[in-house]
Design a protein around this nucleic acid. Structure first.
Lengths: 245, 245
DNA sequence: CGCGCACTCTGAATTAGATTCAAAGTTGGG
DNA sequence: CCCAACTTTGAATCTAATTCAGAGTGCGCG
């Protein structure tokens, strides 16, 4: 009876094992040098077995992206559930992005690649669907904060749906990820910390939505303090802007 | 004397020829099916000759992206030079993005791929530098509009440089390009026209910057009218939101 | 006008690495 | 203990990018 189930569990565990190995190899040698045979070797399985799980290399990468993305969703849920004003909770979503990138510095590069037409098409349709399904909650959670804000009177409808507002926030953050991770693009403009800029502009966008309480654009110290507070209260983490020595 | 120069010209023309062929092939068969040998064949040259120009396939793609990007810069310059309020000119930059995507529907996908770590690393360093150099003016031009706005009193400094504001606008637009072009991501949220949403949120961001005159968030008709006006006055083009039949 | 050098172009051969699949191994029920 | 069904294996296959030895070209000089 249980035989079939045990097997299924074992297979699922093996899938995780492959993904762990892939992530480690990427960290070690970079995405460019990732080879299917190395992943197999590192996991102590044959290449053929790897291909029982993943239709292609890109399929494996999209699986990895989807798995890690679920952890990101958890961070965003923390932001949503935070006991704070709707505006601060919305802002915390941006900080979640920042924390997440710090935790998985490679994630965005892999995601960027996996979502490109070239890689996307090479993934199996099941894997693509799984990724899109993993994405759905994001907009819903963020839209939930928007709806709370409206309910409480912090925000007027202003001719757009909660989802549309959520997408705006998503686009802004996504754009910052993109620019930050594309080698050298921001370097030319001596942007010290792109994610601090992202936070500032997220505040700008929320002000533009007339989301109360409106922030004081010029008060950099207040912004720093808020970021600190979010890190502490929502994510139980320190978040010095300057990391290493 | 002129022999050397003629040769140089011929070589440059050939490079364009290759890029034209590549673009056409991409339009025809998609980026995924682009093959170096096909590009060579279509241009009536040997593969080896192609490789005299481009260090790799990715190098060629980045060259293509850089070439097309320069046309985009021209659109943004039109926005900058427009005889209108600073605020409208800034907004026109967003509309330029929209027009550009309409003109080169494939551009963003190719760019997205070329800028990914995997492809980026495979391009030659000269090509990378050329791309970054082509990017520089963008922020400068947009920052120029910001500076004009400050000069005229439409905008307070508010603790950020003109460049930083320009990067915010860039990030928002870039994020929208990304989300729009990643297959299916926005489809799940029944977003009719992502670029209309982009325009609305660009207005939001500019409002957040306290850029005068502040827009009326709820007035959808006014936004449509403004987009129409920009299309007509700046780009001499129609811009019905709904394209085909 | 013909020669030979220096430069350019060619495309068949090489290569790297993803992917496949025939054969070997395993499992569990009878 | 055997066998059929299911798993796993990794050497062989395949694809397409990339290379490079040799053929071709054009130009200046005797």
């Amino acid at each position: 009876m249980g035989t079939r189930e045990r097997r299924q569990r074992e297979v699922a565990e093996r899938e995780d094992l492959f993904l762990d190995a892939a992530l480690e190899l990427i960290r070690q040698d970079g995405l460019l040098n990732l080879q299917m045979s190395r992943i197999a070797e590192k996991s102590e399985y044959a290449v053929g077995t790897l291909y029982l799980h993943f239709a292609s290399k890109e399929d494996l990468l999209l699986a990895l992206v989807t798995r890690v993305f679920r952890e990101y969703i958890e961070l965003v849920k923390l932001a949503q559930a935070w006991k704070a004003s709707s505006r601060d909770r919305m802002f915390a979503v941006g900080v979640a992005d920042m924390m997440f990138v710090r935790r998985y510095p490679d994630y965005f590069r892999i995601a960027q690649y996996s979502v490109c037409e070239v890689a996307w098409q090479a993934a199996s349709s099941e894997r693509r669907k799984a990724f899109l399904d993993a994405n759905d909650p994001l907009v819903e959670i963020v839209a939930g904060i928007v709806e709370d804000a409206r309910r409480v009177g912090d925000l007027e409808a202003a001719g757009q749906t909660a989802q549309e507002m959520a997408i705006g926030v998503w686009a802004l953050c996504n754009g910052y990820h993109n620019l930050s991770h594309a080698e050298g693009i921001l370097a030319d403009f001596s942007v010290h910390d792109p994610y601090l800029l992202m936070c500032r502009h997220l505040q700008g966008l929320l002000d533009g939505f007339r989301w109360k309480p409106i922030s004081d654009v010029a008060d950099a110290a207040a912004l720093d303090a808020l970021i600190e507070r979010v890190c502490r209260e929502v994510f139980n983490e320190e978040c010095n802007e300057t990391q290493g020595s």
